[in-house]
Amino acid sequence: MNVRIGIVGLGKILDQYLATFDRLPNARVTAVADLNAARAEEVAAQVGARALSVEALVADPEVDVVLNLTIPAAHAEIAHAAIAAGKPVYSEKPLAATTADGIGVLEAARAAGIRVGGAPDTVLGAGIQTARAAVDAGRIGTPTSATATFACPGHESWHPNPDFYYQAGGGPLLDMGPYYLTTLVTLLGEVTSVVGASGAAHESRTIGSGPRAGESVPVDVATHVTGILTHASGAISTVVMSFDTAGTEAPKIEVHGTKGSLSVPDPNRFDGDVRLRELGSPEWAVLEPSAGDIPGGRGIGVVDMMVAENEAGVRASGDLALHVLEMMEGMLSSAETGQAVRISSRVERPAPVPLTTTHP
Rank of each mutant, 00 (worst) to 15 (best):
L10N: 05
G104T: 09
L229M: 12
A96S: 13
G154F: 05
D175H: 13
V63A: 09
G292Y: 02
V307H: 01
T356Y: 00
P282L: 14
H202Y: 10
M241C: 12
A134H: 03
R349K: 10
C152P: 00
G189H: 01
L95I: 14
S345Q: 14
A73M: 08
E190L: 04
L322N: 14
V255W: 07
A291Y: 01
G169F: 11
P160M: 08
N310F: 00
A38L: 14
M241A: 10
A335F: 15
T357E: 07
W158R: 11
R269P: 03
S157K: 05
I236P: 10
A59I: 06
L57V: 04
P360R: 15
L332S: 10
K12H: 09
G297V: 10
T130P: 09
R115C: 04
T122F: 12
T248Q: 06
A76W: 00
A111P: 00
F243C: 07
F243H: 14
V185D: 10
A146C: 07
T70Q: 10
G247A: 12
E92Q: 13
S233F: 07
D266C: 07
T183H: 02
G177C: 11
L24M: 14
P295R: 08
T98C: 07
L262E: 07
V66F: 07
V32C: 06
L287A: 07
I207R: 11
G208Y: 03
T183E: 03
M331I: 15
I228G: 11
L57R: 09
A201H: 13
L35E: 09
